[in-house]
Design a protein around this nucleic acid. Structure first.
Length: 491
RNA sequence: GGCGUCGUGGCCGAGUGGCUAGGCAGGGGCCUGCAAAGCCCCCUACUCCGGUUCGAAUCCGGACGGCGCCUCCA
């Protein structure tokens, strides 16, 4: 089956082919580290995580770069306001970002370069542009003349002359450019007021790199002149990615990226996220409200990346339930298989159908909703089979379980839930022994039809976090992520 | 103003010109001492107005509405 992506460059669904067979080089715009990333940022990062996982699942080796923008107007402003160095602003934010990254179960990327450590490369890039007549200097700053780059604005379907034509005409700080639409490659620091918290030497004097430049420089340094995939939020289409293309292709004369994939912004309770509405949640904000990271991960991944996902607390509750259903399902399957008996009932066809539905859905521009639909159909079907073969497993049950491993490779939610549950106090062996003994007493009470006593024992177990579930011929004790199935005691 | 995207049942969210995704919530039932889990049944939708078609939520036109971009926000 062929993998297809909606390419922002052409605004069409295109079959994906990598430059080098079986290897994908991917660049992902990372965060600007002036403040803790919010769930909207993470929606994009999570989708990119899903993308790399799925590419790998399809057999590609993935080499991914995600930059850290640790110098820009906001970080500089913050440093000046607080009278500290740039590092003192960015380091803690980077640490929070990486913490949240781990909490949400994102895989580590191959390279995570920082802008401040790649200024030399950026300067070289400007010099190359200068040699090609694609950079000019005005009072120690360097600009890119967009009129000299044919095809400027293709990514956003904007003709160059419409850019910058509306509303705010260029502010007074921009009047020294040849053309108000030209963007800055290097910001000279002459005449700038305030402490110099971010200044580098360059052939044009002291200054700092323009924002767009870092991605071009780092992408090409780590991944080469043409990337297979470049991703980011939709807001980056213009000007950021548009300018990256101009700079990079201006230097190399080759396509900068074959596929441009963009993630649409999140809505929160039907409205766009903004600080003034107070709906700009961070990962810890959600965890503090009692939701698991796996729930947040599931919810943020459950909508198609080019659709505005409406993040709501109702949705979070629904996601928690859906996760639980999936989790319990895997548990039940393991338990049935642990008995080691297969019946003559055969459910292999259902598993095969699910596999192919899942892959077909994901192949089509990562249609996660469709893919999850396939997974939950399997859950229902398998439960039916399991009901009919209690307490044994139908033929193909282990295939269903191994399909869940595939699902997990791509979505990464179940193992995250495992960690959360075990982190929240995994039952030790002695607790399990204690619970089993309690269960014997409870069975004895049940046999005597002393249900008051039986329920009291169950309540005391639950008080210790052990959930009792009476199954057809066994009793299940749930200790968070672990569960033990105990045969009903003989009467 | 230009470019774009979307409008699906109580909520969230897929979708193909005819064969009623899925999750959550709600109602009924099976199972059960009860509970939980699971299963079954019900609630069966496609913003509006035209058009094409044997047949459209799905194609075309229009209207209305949401959201986004048009210089540094994922």
């Amino acid at each position: 089956m062929t993998l297809r992506f909606h390419n922002s460059l052409t605004r069409k669904l295109e079959s994906f082919e990598s430059i080098e067979p079986d290897k994908v080089r991917m660049y992902t715009c990372g965060p600007t580290v002036y403040d803790r990333a919010h769930i909207g940022n993470f929606r994009a990062f999570l989708w990119e995580d899903l993308l790399r996982r799925y590419l790998r699942w399809k057999g590609f080796e993935v080499e991914q770069v995600m930059n850290l923008t640790d110098v820009d107007d906001k970080t500089i402003e913050a440093a000046r306001e607080r009278g500290v160095s740039l590092d003192e602003v960015t380091e803690p934010v980077i640490q929070m970002f990486l913490d949240d990254w781990t909490t949400l179960g994102l895989e580590e990327v191959e390279y995570r370069p920082r802008a401040t450590e790649h200024v030399d490369g950026m300067i070289r890039l400007i010099e190359s542009l200068q040699e090609k007549g694609l950079a000019y200097e005005v009072e120690g700053s360097m600009y890119f003349p967009i009129a000299r780059f044919p095809g400027y604005g293709q990514l956003v379907n904007l003709a160059p002359d419409t850019i910058g034509n509306v509303g705010r005409v260029s502010g007074d700080e921009e009047y020294d450019k040849d053309d108000p639409r030209d963007f800055v490659l290097w910001k000279g620091s002459q005449g700038e007021e305030g402490p110099k918290v971010a200044v580098w030497e360059s052939p044009w004097g002291l200054g700092r790199p323009g924002w767009h430049l870092e991605c071009s420089a780092m992408a090409m340094q780590y991944l080469g002149e043409t990337l297979d995939i470049h991703t980011g939020g939709v807001d980056n289409l213009f000007p950021h990615h548009t300018n990256e293309i101009a700079q990079s292709e201006g230097v190399t004369g080759r396509p900068f990226a074959n596929f441009w994939l963009h993630v649409t912004h999140l809505l929160v309770e039907g409205r766009k996220m903004s600080k003034s509405l107070g709906n700009c949640f961070t990962v810890p904000d959600i965890l503090e409200k009692g939701y698991a990271a796996s729930t947040l991960r599931y919810l943020l991944l459950s909508g198609h990346h080019r659709t505005q996902l409406n993040f709501t607390f109702d949705g979070l509750n629904a996601a928690a339930k859906a996760m639980q259903r999936l989790y319990d399902f895997r548990q039940r399957l393991r338990e049935a298989l642990a008995l080691g008996v297969e019946t003559t009932v055969d459910m292999r066809a259902a598993v095969e159908a699910t596999k192919s539905d899942f892959e077909a859905a994901m192949d089509e521009d990562l249609n996660v909703s469709e893919a999850l639909g396939a997974v939950f159909r399997l859950v229902r079907d398998t439960n039916q089979f399991l009901d009919s073969t209690v307490p044994n497993a139908p033929i193909g049950a282990k295939d269903a379980l191994s399909f869940l491993d595939d699902f997990e490779d791509v979505f990464g939610v179940l193992s995250l839930m495992d960690e959360e549950i075990s982190g929240a106090g995994e039952a030790g062996e002695e607790v399990i022994e204690w619970a089993k003994n309690q269960l014997v007493d409870r069975e004895r009470a049940r046999e005597k039809r002393d249900f008051e006593q039986a329920d009291a024992i169950r309540a005391s177990l639950e008080a210790k976090g052990v959930v009792v579930e009476d199954l057809a011929e066994t009793t299940r004790l749930r200790f968070g992520s672990r569960s033990v199935v105990v045969p009903r005691s003989r009467r």
